[in-house]
């Protein structure tokens, strides 16, 4: 267990394993997203109140949960970087910010276009929407902060502190619909009964899209982290070998 954890902190190990894992991850993600999206868009029955419009939920809910998960991941990586000085953790944290930002933007956008016909407004300053917007600004802030530093380590530390301060916002997003009176609805309970308001035939596709989008999220993080490894570890011997091998292959196209 500890040995495995220790290995995780090695950029070389991460680069090798993620490279081997990638084709499987891409295949599984494509399958899950394909099934979930086609199922959710074309095969589930319309909602009795919202009609076909509720199909936005199949991307809105997974996008929002993964955006929150992404913030937690960034904060955990930030803590690992601050406490144990693990360079690898900082590289993953750096990858989290832009990915989390786009997922939060997706949650906000899909929520807005969903709100226009159902709520009669695309935006309201209720607790759920506002705290989610703050999360997007935190992601943007972390990216801006990093770009303001010339030193990789100093920038990483500053970003880690901001990420850890901002993590308080994530449970606020989660429980905002319970703590305050919001226009945004609370979490729908999933029922196993087919006669319930939210039967399996409605929420099953969301699981496919959810796991598919999680797979995609991992792919996005891995792609960015691998780039970061090649840049930061360019003086390491093994990176030199990887670079010259890739350069030979790509000499024609780049």
């Amino acid at each position: 267990m500890w040995q495995w954890l220790y290995k995780l902190t090695s950029p070389k190990w991460f680069y090798t394993i993620s490279g081997q894992l990638m084709p499987w991850l891409v295949g599984l993600t494509t399958f899950l997203l394909g099934v979930g999206l086609i199922w959710g868009l074309a095969f589930t029955p319309p909602d009795y109140q919202m009609g076909e419009n509720y199909r936005i939920a199949y991307i809105h809910v997974p996008a929002a949960s993964i955006a929150m998960g992404c913030y937690y991941m960034m904060a955990i990586m930030a803590a690992a970087f601050l406490i144990w000085r693990i360079k690898m953790a900082d590289m993953v944290a750096k990858a989290c910010a832009p990915v989390g930002m786009t997922f939060t933007a997706l949650a906000l956008f899909t929520g807005s276009v969903w709100g226009i016909p159902t709520w009669g407004t695309w935006w309201i300053w209720d607790a759920r929407l506002t705290s989610t917007l703050i999360m997007m600004f935190l992601f943007i802030g972390v990216m801006a902060l990093r770009s303001a530093y010339d030193s990789e380590t100093a920038g990483g530390k500053a970003c880690a502190v901001l990420s850890l301060v901002g993590v308080v916002n994530v449970p606020i997003i989660k429980y905002s619909v319970e703590w305050w009176n919001t226009l945004h609805q609370g979490a729908s309970s999933l029922s196993l009964s087919n006669t319930a308001a939210n039967p399996p035939e409605i929420w099953m596709p969301a699981f496919f899209v959810g796991f598919g989008l999680f797979g995609f999220y991992l792919i996005a993080i891995i792609l960015r982290t691998r780039n970061e490894i090649l840049i930061r570890e360019r003086k390491a011997e093994w990176v030199g070998e990887v670079l010259s091998a890739t350069l030979l292959v790509n000499q024609g196209e780049v």
Binding site: N53, I56, V113
Partner: peptide, 13 residues
């Protein structure tokens, strides 16, 4: 047509 919600559903997707 998405039951009249085409603009919303398709712009989200």
């Amino acid at each position: 047509a998405m039951g009249g919600y085409a603009t919303y559903v398709w712009s989200a997707y």
